[in-house]
Simulated scan of single mutants.
Amino acid sequence: MPLKKDLLDILACPACKGKVTLKPAGDGLECPKCKVVYPVKDDIPIMLVDQAVKTSEWTGSK
């Protein structure tokens, strides 16, 4: 089940508190300001700064 829009509307980057957007594949939440992606595993966003992956290094959630 994909993330619901209501949840996406309230989620924010834990580092900068900016807006995050769902990657097209639905496997990550991207913060354009910090240039990182937070993985989504089993439809659960992992919003931990130490779990973020640089956007340039993002290959998708494993």
Rank of each mutant, 00 (worst) to 15 (best):
G18H: 11
D43L: 07
K35D: 11
V40R: 02
D42K: 14
T21M: 09
C34W: 03
P24S: 15
C13D: 04
S56Y: 01
L29F: 13
L22C: 11
D6Y: 12
I10L: 06
P45I: 01
V37N: 05
Y38P: 02
M1F: 08
D43M: 12
L8S: 05
K35I: 02
V40D: 02
C13Q: 01
P14R: 03
K4G: 15
G60Y: 00
C31I: 03
A25F: 02
T21A: 10
A12S: 14
I44V: 14
P24M: 10
D6C: 09
V53C: 01
T59Y: 00
T59K: 06
G28M: 05
L48T: 02
G18V: 07
K33L: 14
P32M: 09
G60R: 00
I44Y: 09
T59W: 00
P2F: 08
M47H: 06
P2K: 14
G28L: 04
C16W: 08
I44F: 07
T55P: 00
K17V: 11
G60K: 00
D6W: 12
K35T: 07
V36Y: 02
E30N: 10
L7K: 12
L48Y: 02
E57L: 02
D9L: 10
K19D: 11
A15Q: 12
K23M: 15
W58T: 01
D9F: 06
G26D: 05
L29Y: 07
P32A: 07
P24E: 15
V49K: 09
I46D: 09
L29S: 10
W58Q: 00
D50K: 10
D50I: 02
K33W: 12
V37R: 04
K19F: 08
L3N: 04
I44G: 04
L29N: 05
A25H: 04
K19A: 13
D42T: 06
C31N: 05
L7N: 06
K54Y: 13
K41H: 13
V37Y: 04
L22P: 09
P39I: 03
Y38A: 01
L11I: 13
C31D: 05
D9S: 14
K23D: 11
D9T: 10
C31L: 08
T55H: 02
V53K: 00
L11A: 09
P45G: 04
T55C: 01
K41A: 15
I46T: 10
G26R: 06
C34Q: 09
G26C: 13
K54T: 12
K41C: 13
I10N: 04
C31V: 07
K41I: 15
D50N: 13
D9M: 09
P2T: 14
K23G: 08
P2N: 08
A15R: 12
E57T: 00
T59R: 06
K17M: 15
M47Y: 08
P39T: 03
E57S: 02
A12H: 08
I10A: 03
I46Q: 13
D42Y: 09
I10F: 04
L22D: 09
P24H: 13
K19T: 10
W58E: 01
K33F: 13
A15S: 13
G28P: 05
Y38C: 02
G28E: 05
P39C: 08
E57D: 10
D6S: 15
S56C: 03
V20T: 08
K41R: 15
